[in-house]
Design a protein around this nucleic acid. Structure first.
Lengths: 91, 91
DNA sequence: CCGCTAAATAGATGGCCGTCTATAAAAATT
DNA sequence: AATTTTTATAGACGGCCATCTATTTAGCGG
């Protein structure tokens, strides 16, 4: 992963609500309706945040009837963790 | 480190120029005049980016005569790496 | 077919962001 | 004291962002 891609992901994670969405999905997939319960934002705003996280490859989605379940994209997350882990102090 | 603090740092790293500043400082401290050579932005813009990185605790500074040398704050960086490393896929 | 639930889209709004030019401040040198 | 170098600050501007309300789309059950 290079700097522009990593910056894109950082920007996506640079909002407390979105970072908490990722934290929640750490425990496994959840539908948007369940995610919404954890926040004090409207449904369209949550949908907007989900879109931003999806567009940079952090989220996968799976439809099941009327619900859509979202989960973390393991590969993108792994590459991003690797990039951040490489940012080490020289001391 | 909690979500709001991590989001603040992510926002600071969510710009390619700023992420590259951090990458450069991985190799040790540098003065702003040296950092500037690596970018195609003006000096005030670089100063602005440095300020944002400093305000979230990522950068330390040390003055030496007319120059100011910037370096990574090891502790902040370590805590942030730890936070990101904890964002793991459930699969 | 209708109504209900879940999610996305459209459009608006206020605010923050990245960048610039111009200027100031601080330190060293002549 | 004047000049040069390095960095910070002020102010402006265009654009993007987070959020909202209103509406639409999609699937399911009666």
């Amino acid at each position: 992963m290079n700097a522009p891609d990593a910056a894109l992901i950082c920007r996506a994670l640079g909002d407390t609500n979105r970072l908490q969405i990722v934290e929640l999905l750490t425990n496994g997939e959840q539908c948007a309706c369940k995610l919404l319960e954890h926040f004090s934002i409207t449904q369209p705003t949550l949908s907007h945040h989900i879109k931003i996280l999806s567009e940079c490859g952090l989220l996968d989605s799976r439809r099941e009837g009327v619900r859509t379940f979202y989960s973390l994209n393991c590969e993108t997350l792994r590459e991003f963790r690797k990039y951040i882990a490489a940012l080490e102090c020289s001391c």
